[in-house]
Every structure is written in C-alpha cells, then in structure tokens.
Simulated scan of single mutants.
Amino acid sequence: MRISARTQYALGAMLALATADRPVHAERIAATQEIPRRFCDNILLQLRRAGLLRSQRGPDGGYWLARPPGEIALADVIRVTEGAEPDARPFPRAAAPLAAIWDRLRSHENALLSEITLADVVAAGDDHDAPAEPG
C-alpha cells in the first residue's frame, strides 16, 4: 500500500485534533504538523465534507473531530484522501493466482487500518513519550 503525502498530512492533522481539548485554527495545524498552509486548508475541507471534522469560524473557532478519537479509524481518513482502491487488473495464465493474493492483502490491510483508531495512535505516542523504565 502506498500512502500519499496528502494522506500523511491528513492523518497528522487528525491526530493533532485528537490531542486538542478545544477547536484548533487551520494555521496552527499547518504549523505544528508542517503542512503547507493551502494544502492543509484543502485537506481540512475534504475531511469536514466527509463528516470527520466540524468547524466554526471566528477567534474562538477552528476545527475539531466530529466523533471521539476512539471512533475514528485510520481507514476512515485514508478512504477520504485516497478514495477507493481500484480492482487489480487480471493476471494472465501462470500469474492468475496473484489476483486472489492481492485481494487477501487488501482485505488484511483494510481490516488492520479499520481496527486502529486515532485514540490508539495517540496512546502509542504517549507510551513513546514516557521515560524508559529502569531495567
């Protein structure tokens, strides 16, 4: 699976919002996640239109997650930014069994990415930020 820069930026923005306790302005998301500003605006708009984000204008406004981080899977974000993956082209003759293998691979990828939520990634990051235990 290839993950585009757009998807990496979208995941970064979503994770930044998953750790925020109030709405966050687009310029702050762009700066903290090192996303080009215009690109960030387009991504946030796409995620809002898909129902993953909410927004409000004004000095107290910004963006926030439409659902709790534990209810948004990585697959939800990836589907918005990458779209549906096209079916693999048919393989001729001796390579024909590869089509079934690719289908299984996509199924496993989708299952894994559907299980991992933004909350899981935030928790994994918290584990990495903790000081190492003496051992």
Rank of each mutant, 00 (worst) to 15 (best):
A73T: 04
A31L: 14
A111T: 11
R48P: 00
T32S: 11
G62P: 00
R49Q: 15
L98C: 02
F39D: 06
A30D: 01
L47F: 05
D129E: 14
L52G: 01
C40G: 06
T81Y: 02
L74I: 13
E133I: 10
R49K: 15
R22H: 14
Q56H: 09
D126Y: 10
L112Y: 10
A96G: 00
P68A: 15
P59Q: 11
A75E: 10
F91E: 09
D87C: 03
I78K: 03
D127M: 10
P97S: 07
G51M: 05
W102I: 09
T7F: 01
L98M: 14
D60W: 12
R54P: 00
I3F: 12
D60K: 15
A66V: 03
A95Y: 13
E115A: 13
R6S: 05
G70D: 14
A99D: 07
A119I: 02
I72A: 04
R104Q: 14
L113R: 14
N110E: 14
A94E: 14
D120S: 08
A130Y: 08
I101K: 10
P69M: 06
D21E: 15
R38D: 07
V80N: 05
G61D: 08
T117W: 06
D126H: 15
R104C: 02
Q46D: 15
A31H: 13
A94L: 13
L98N: 02
I72E: 00
H108W: 04
A111W: 10
I101F: 13
P92L: 11
A119Y: 04
A119R: 11
A75N: 13
R57F: 09
T117F: 04
A73I: 02
A99R: 12
V80W: 09
I101E: 12
P36K: 09
G58Q: 09
V80C: 06
Y9N: 04
A100R: 15
A111Q: 11
L47Q: 04
D76S: 07
A50N: 06
E109I: 13
A73W: 06
G12A: 13
G83M: 05
P68T: 13
D21V: 05
A13P: 01
L47H: 05
A94D: 12
P131T: 00
V122K: 08
T7M: 01
D60H: 12
A66S: 14
D103L: 09
A13H: 01
A18N: 04
P69Y: 09
S107G: 12
A99S: 14
G125F: 09
Y63G: 00
H25G: 00
E82Y: 02
D103M: 06
P131S: 08
I43K: 01
R6K: 15
T117H: 07
A26K: 06
T81I: 01
I3R: 12
R49F: 05
A30E: 03
T32L: 12
G61R: 08
D120A: 07
L74S: 01
D126K: 14
Q46M: 08
A10C: 02
S107N: 09
R48D: 10
R48W: 03
